[in-house]
Design a protein around this nucleic acid. Structure first.
Length: 181
DNA sequence: GCCAGGATCGTC
DNA sequence: ACGATCCTGGCA
């Protein structure tokens, strides 16, 4: 049966927290070597604006962060700790730097264990730097889609973000969202 | 140029 | 609790 269609630009071009909660339960789809790798997004984190000290954009617009200032619906992929990649989706209006880090997926197809952690997702789905700035709104090798799965708003939990102690008080913001089954 | 540090993960 | 490993930003 056919794959669901990619989420459109106007899904991403909204308030980052609204998009983040709406992303829970959506499918991450990666076409690779004729196979479809599919996971259901179950954990995300928001990075919003230059004032967010946890965000790469807190340094302002640079060669690295310009993707976050760009058109919503593109991927922001960066390398961390010299050995892992992290996948984000860009949100909000152009020139406002914001993105959502995809932190965990449940296996749906051709993925055989829960990918809990942004580095593991990129490893399992073969997502590397070549997907930085990739447009997620077309039916390509990498996109996100809605298959009708519903996550009830009262099943969504908000907690502080992981691994951002350097952001001081911003590390306490409840900008990580997950849902309990 | 050089250096400190990191939106992580597996192992000790 | 710690090391792997390399990209980034800041400073000289």
């Amino acid at each position: 049966m056919p794959l669901p269609t990619p989420l459109p630009r106007n899904f991403y071009n909204r308030n980052t927290h609204v998009v983040a909660k709406d992303l829970l339960g959506k499918l991450l789809i990666r076409k690779k070597d004729g196979n479809n790798l599919i996971g259901r997004i179950c954990e995300v984190e928001c990075y919003v604006g230059e004032d967010d000290r946890a965000s790469h954009a807190s340094k302002g617009k640079t060669k690295r962060t310009e993707i976050m200032y760009g058109e919503a619906g593109h991927a922001y992929v960066y390398m961390i700790y010299g050995m892992y990649y992290c996948l984000n989706v860009v949100t909000e209006v152009e020139n406002f730097p914001a993105a959502i880090l995809i932190r965990a997926c449940e296996p749906v197809k051709n993925i055989f264990s829960k990918t809990n952690g942004p580095g593991k997702i990129c490893r399992e789905f073969s997502i590397d730097r070549t997907y930085n700035d990739h447009d997620l709104t077309t039916s390509s090798e990498l996109f996100i889609a809605d298959d009708g799965f519903k996550v009830l708003s009262n099943a969504i939990i908000a907690t502080p973000r992981i691994g951002v102690a350097y952001a001081k008080e911003d590390a306490l913001l409840p900008w990580r969202y997950l849902y309990s089954k």
